[in-house]
Design a protein around this nucleic acid. Structure first.
Length: 883
DNA sequence: CTATAGGTACTTTTT
DNA sequence: GTACCTATAG
C-alpha cells in the first residue's frame, strides 16, 4: 500500500506545501533557512514529481552536497514509494562530481575521454610539483621574466625554483570552477602569463596520464553534454545546497535541465533549494549570487522563476535562534529573512571565557560529563556535538575527551584515507587494477623498500614518461626498461612486476566469479596476498593500529559493490524514443579501479558504528556539520583569529569576514536546545608562535544574550522544563542540589582520572570498582552510563591511567592549568610520552573496533606501560591535509 | 647509490 | 608534533 501523497502533504506547513505542489513544469527557488524542514520539503517534492506527475525516476536528476545526503534521501523515499513500482535508486542522484563522472564513463568516447580515471588530490599535487621541479633553465628564466608571477612565488628558492605549487593549484581550480579551460585561458587577453604557462603544462600532463582532476569532471562533462544531447530524457532537475554551487555547476545545472528539444513541457524544469546565509564554501568558489544569476538567466528567456521562502524554524529554541539572527544581522546587504522559532521552552546559551584551548577542552568535557550524568539519560553522548572552525582544533578536544573517557567520533574525518598505510595499500590496488597508472607504479616500486633508490626511481620516471601510454601500458614498459638497469635494480624491479602480475591473475579470478560467498572468500584471499607479498605487512605489522587500518580497507573493499552503469539511461532520438544506437562506453573499468574511484568521489560506506545510534559525541568542523542538528552543541574557539579565522582578518576584506560570520551562523543553528560557546582570550601558545587573542567580534557586544553557567540545571523548575523539552518525564527521587554538589566534588574528578583527589576524599580507587554493575549511589540513583564506563575502564588497568594533567576540583571549579605534578618534560621527540598525541590519533579516533570503551584507553596504556627504551611508533600520519 | 639521523618550517574550510 | 629537506654514515 503506497503512502498517498496527501499523507505526505498533511505534515507540512503552508509554505512547505506550496513548495512541494508547485507545478513540475517550471522553475522554483526555495530559500530555506536552517531548521525549516528543507530536507523534508525536498524529499516530498521528489515524491510528488514521481507519484503525481508520473515522472520516471531516471528522468530526475538530484544533486546533493554529499553522498550521505543522497543516501538519506533514498532511505526516506523508500517508505513513501512502498507498494508502487517506483525504484528511487534509479534517480540520477549524487554530488555534481559523481553524476558528471558517471556521464563521462558512459559517453566519454564522444569527447575522447575513454579510460580516464580520477586524479585525487595527491595525484594532482604531485603532477604540479613535478612540473615545477622539472622546469629546465630556459623555462625558469621565461617564467621569472613574466609579469604577474609574484603571486606564485614563495620568496625562497628551492625544489620548485621559488614557485609554490599550491598557489598554482588554487588558481587553476578557480579558473576551472568558472568554466575556463586551458585553451580558453591561453587565448584570453587578460590572462596571467605565468599561470597560463603552468595551466597548459598541467593539463597536458593530466591528459598524458589519462587523468581528470576533480574540477575536470565538471568541466569536461559540461563540454560533453552541451555538445551532445545525452541527457535529453531528463524532465526535472533538483539541486540541494544551491548556495554552495560554483559557476560551472550553475552552467551544468542549466544543461542538465535543457530537456528534450521537441517537447517544451520537459525543458528547463528546475527546483533549487538553499540558503544564502549558509553559504560557506566561497573558498571553493561557491557563489550564492547564483540565486540571482539563475533568476536573470531564465527571466531573460521569458521563463519566470518563482521563489518561496521558508521561515518557520522547527529546530532551535528562541534564544538560540535569536543569537543566530543577531549574528547574521551584522552582515550588510543581507537579504533579510526573519526566522521564527516554533519551540516554546528556551534556555540562554552559555558563553565561557578561557585562557587556553586546553582549558576550553576541559570545560567542554566537564559539561558533557555533567549532561550525560543526569538521570534517565536525558542527554546521551549521541545528542551532543562539538563544532570547530579548523580541523586542528580537534586535537586539544580529543585529548581531553579521551582523558574523560567520553566516546566520540569525527564526522567526515577523511583523514583515514590519508594515512600512510592506507594510502600505500590503495596504491597497490591501483597498480593491480590499472596497468596504465604510472603514478601509482612509481609510488609502489620502492615502498616498502626494495633497494631501488631515489636516483634510480627518477631515472625510471623519466623513461616511463617517454613512453606513449597509447601503445604500451606502464607495466610492459617497465618490463622493457628493467633490462637496462643494473643487475641489483633489475632483479628488484622484475620481482616486483612479477608480484603485480600474480596479484592481477588472482584479481581476474575474483572478477569472473558471480557474487557470493566464494567470491568474497577469494577477494579476501587476494587482499591478504597483496598485503603480505607486497611487503607491506612486514612494514606495518609492528603497529597494531596500522594493521587495523589495513583491515578496515579490506572491509571496505569487501563491502564495495560497483554501481551497474549498464543501467545508465539511454538518450532519446528525435521521435522521443530511446536511441537505437546507444553509443555508449562499455563498462571496462576493473573492479579495483571502480573501488578506487569511488573512494576518490567520497562514496565509501560510512562506518556503521559511527552512525547515529552508536551513542558517541560527534566532533566535526563546522563545514562538516552542515545539514545536521543536535540537541546540544558546543563551539570552542569563538575568538578573534579562529572565528573569524586569522587569514580572513589579515585579508582585510569584508566578504571574507562575512563568510566567517556565516560559518558561525551555521554552527549556532545546528543546536536544538542547548548551546555552549567558549572563547580563548589569552595568548595561545603554540610551538611556533604566540597568538594573542580576544573574544570574537561576532559576540563581543552580546554579553546580555549569554549566561556564564547553564541556568537550566540550577533549580528544579527549569530542570523540569528541560526534561520536558527533551520529551522525558522528569525523575522523581532526585536531588538536584546533591547532584550538583556531588558531581563537582566527586564524579568529575573521578572521571577525569584524578585519583589523588579521590584519595584525599577518603575514597580509594577500589571503592569505585564494584562487581555489581549498577550499584546504588549515595546520590539517590546510579550514575549509570558514564560512571560504569569509567569504572570498567579503571578496573581493567587502573594504574595505566595517566595522572599527569588532571586538576583539583573545588567548590568553584577552576579550569586553569593543573597544579598537580605534571608529566616529566619531554626533552626529545623520542621520549615515550611524546607519542601521546600520536597514539591518540592512531588509537582513539580511528579505533573503531573497541566499541564499548571510551576511546583513549589503549593509547594511554601504551604510553605508560611501554618498556623503557622502546621506540615510539615509526610513523603515524597527521590528520591534516598534505601540501 | 641508498638509508637514516637530525635539522627546519609550518596549521582554513572540501567535492 | 609532523612533513619536508639536507648532511652523513653505510
Amino acid at each position: 500500500m503506497s503512502m498517498d501523497i496527501s499523507t505526505v502533504l498533511q505534515s507540512l506547513n503552508e509554505k512547505q506545501k506550496e513548495s512541494v505542489i508547485s507545478p513540475s513544469n517550471g522553475r522554483l527557488q526555495i530559500v530555506a533557512g536552517p531548521g525549516t524542514g528543507k530536507t523534508k520539503v525536498l524529499i516530498s517534492r521528489v515524491a510528488k514529481l514521481l507519484l503525481v506527475d508520473n515522472i520516471e525516476p531516471y528522468q530526475l536528476i538530484v544533486t546533493t552536497f554529499t553522498k550521505k545526503a543522497a543516501n538519506e534521501m533514498i532511505e526516506r523515499l523508500t517508505p513513501i514509494l512502498k507498494g508502487t513500482s517506483i525504484d528511487p535508486t534509479k534517480i540520477l542522484m549524487g554530488t555534481f562530481h559523481s553524476i558528471c563522472y558517471r556521464i563521462i564513463r558512459r559517453y566519454g568516447m564522444k569527447a575522447d575521454l575513454s579510460n580516464y580515471t580520477i586524479a585525487d588530490e595527491r595525484d594532482s599535487n604531485q603532477i604540479l610539483s613535478d612540473i615545477l621541479k622539472n622546469l629546465n633553465n630556459e623555462e625558469i628564466d621565461h617564467l621569472d621574466s613574466l609579469d604577474g608571477n609574484e603571486m606564485f612565488k614563495t620568496g625562497k628558492d628551492g625544489k620548485y625554483h621559488g614557485y609554490d605549487p599550491k598557489v598554482f593549484k588554487r588558481q587553476i581550480s578557480k579558473l576551472k570552477s568558472s568554466g575556463i579551460t586551458y585553451k580558453k585561458y591561453l587565448t584570453a587577453p587578460s590572462s596571467n602569463k605565468c599561470l597560463r604557462f603552468i595551466y597548459e603544462k598541467y593539463q597536458l600532463q593530466l591528459k598524458k596520464e589519462f587523468l581528470l582532476d576533480f574540477d575536470d569532471c565538471l568541466l569536461e562533462c559540461y563540454d560533453l553534454i552541451s555538445k551532445y544531447p545525452v541527457l535529453n530524457f531528463v524532465q526535472h532537475v533538483l539541486v540541494d545546497e544551491f548556495q554552495d554551487t560554483n559557476e560551472i555547476q550553475l552552467r551544468l545545472m542549466y544543461e542538465f535541465a535543457r530537456g528534450h528539444p521537441t517537447n517544451p513541457l520537459f525543458q528547463n524544469n528546475l527546483t533549487i533549494v538553499g540558503d544564502p546565509d549558509q553559504s560557506i564554501y566561497g573558498f571553493r568558489d561557491a557563489q550564492s549570487a547564483n540565486f540571482k544569476k539563475m533568476k536573470k538567466y531564465y527571466e531573460s528567456k521569458n521563463l519566470p522563476v518563482s521563489v518561496i521562502t521558508l521561515d518557520e524554524n522547527y529546530r532551535s529554541t528562541k534564544d538560540i535562534l535569536s543569537i543566530s539572527e543577531t549574528i547574521m544581522r551584522q552582515q550588510k546587504d543581507r537579504v533579510t529573512k526573519q526566522l521564527s522559532s516554533q519551540i516554546e521552552n528556551s534556555f540562554k546559551p552559555v558563553h565561557k571565557t578561557c585562557n587556553s584551548s586546553k582549558q576550553e577542552a576541559r570545560w567542554i568535557a566537564y559539561q558533557i560529563t555533567y549532561l550525560t550524568s543526569l538521570p534517565d539519560s536525558v542527554v546521551r553522548y549521541q545528542d551532543i556535538s562539538i563544532l570547530v572552525r579548523a580541523a586542528y582544533q580537534t586535537r586539544a578536544i580529543e585529548n581531553e575527551l579521551v582523558k574523560c573517557r567520553i566516546p566520540y567520533f569525527m564526522i567526515r574525518g577523511k583523514a583515514f584515507w590519508d594515512r600512510k598505510e592506507v594510502v600505500a595499500m590503495l596504491d597497490y590496488l591501483r597498480v593491480i587494477g590499472n596497468p596504465l597508472d604510472r603514478i601509482a607504479y612509481l609510488r609502489t616500486i620502492n615502498f616498502p623498500k626494495r633497494g631501488i633508490g631515489e636516483k634510480t626511481l627518477e631515472d625510471l620516471a623519466k623513461r616511463l614518461e617517454a613512453v606513449d601510454l597509447n601503445s604500451y601500458n606502464s607495466h610492459d614498459a617497465l618490463k622493457i626498461i628493467a633490462e637496462q638497469l643494473s643487475n641489483k635494480n633489475q632483479k628488484s624491479l622484475l620481482s616486483y612486476l612479477e608480484f603485480i602480475e600474480d596479484a592481477r591473475i588472482k584479481m581476474i579470478e575474483v572478477e569472473t566469479m558471480d557474487l557470493g560467498e566464494e567470491r568474497e572468500r577469494l577477494l579476501d584471499e587476494f587482499f591478504d596476498f597483496v598485503y603480505v607479498k607486497s611487503g607491506l605487512k612486514d612494514q606495518f605489522k609492528k603497529e597494531e593500529s596500522h594493521e587495523q587500518n589495513i583491515m578496515e580497507v579490506k572491509k571496505q573493499l569487501l563491502e564495495f559493490s560497483p554501481r551497474d552503469e549498464d543501467e545508465f539511461p539511454v538518450y532519446l532520438n528525435d521521435q522521443g524514443q530511446p536511441s537505437q544506437v546507444p553509443e555508449m562506453e562499455e563498462d571496462n573499468q576493473s573492479f579495483l579501479s571502480k573501488f578506487i574511484v569511488s573512494l576518490g568521489l567520497f562514496e565509501h560506506s560510512e562506518d556503521k558504528e559511527d552512525e547515529q545510534g552508536s551513542n558517541k559525541v560527534s566532533l566535526s568542523t563546522i563545514h562538516g556539520s552542515k545539514g545536521l542538528e543536535w540537541p546540544v552543541v558546543l563551539i570552542p574557539g569563538v575568538s578573534e583569529g579562529l572565528l573569524p579565522a586569522s587569514f580572513a582578518i589579515k585579508s582585510g576584506g569584508e566578504e571574507e569576514i562575512d563568510e566567517e560570520r556565516r560559518c558561525f551562523y551555521v554552527a549556532t543553528t545546528r543546536a536544538k536546545t542547548l548551546l555552549y560557546l567558549t572563547s580563548c582570550v589569552e595568548e595561545e601558545k603554540s610551538w611556533y608562535n604566540n597568538k594573542p587573542s580576544s573574544v570574537s567580534r561576532f559576540i563581543s557586544n552580546l554579553d546580555h544574550k549569554f549566561t556564564k553557567t547553564q541556568k537550566c540545571f540550577s533549580d528544579w523548575e527549569t530542570l523540569k522544563s528541560f526534561y520536558c523539552i527533551r520529551g522525558k518525564a522528569h525523575p522523581n527521587s532526585f536531588d538536584l542540589h546533591i547532584f550538583n554538589k556531588g558531581y563537582k566534588e566527586q564524579l568529575f574528578p573521578f572521571l577525569t582520572g584524578d585519583l589523588q583527589r579521590i584519595e584525599t576524599m577518603n575514597y580509594k580507587p577500589q571503592d569505585f570498582i564494584v562487581h555489581n554493575p549498577e550499584p546504588k549511589s549515595e546520590f539517590g540513583f546510579g550514575f549509570s552510563s558514564s560512571l560504569s564506563k569509567a569504572r570498567y575502564a579503571l578496573s581493567k588497568d587502573r594504574y595505566a591511567y595517566d595522572l599527569g594533567d588532571s586538576e583539583p576540583a573545588t567548590e568553584e571549579i577552576d579550569f586553569s592549568e593543573p597544579k598537580f605534578p605534571k608529566r616529566a618534560p619531554m626533552s626529545s621527540n623520542k621520549a615515550p610520552g611524546s607519542s601521546y598525541i600520536k597514539n591518540l590519533y592512531a588509537g582513539a579516533a580511528f579505533k573503531k573496533h573497541k566499541p564499548s570503551m571510551a576511546p583513549a584507553y589503549n593509547p594511554v596504556k601504551i604510553n605508560s606501560l611501554a618498556p623503557k627504551g622502546k621506540k615510539a611508533p615509526a610513523y603515524i600520519p597527521d590528520r591534516r591535509k598534505k601540501a
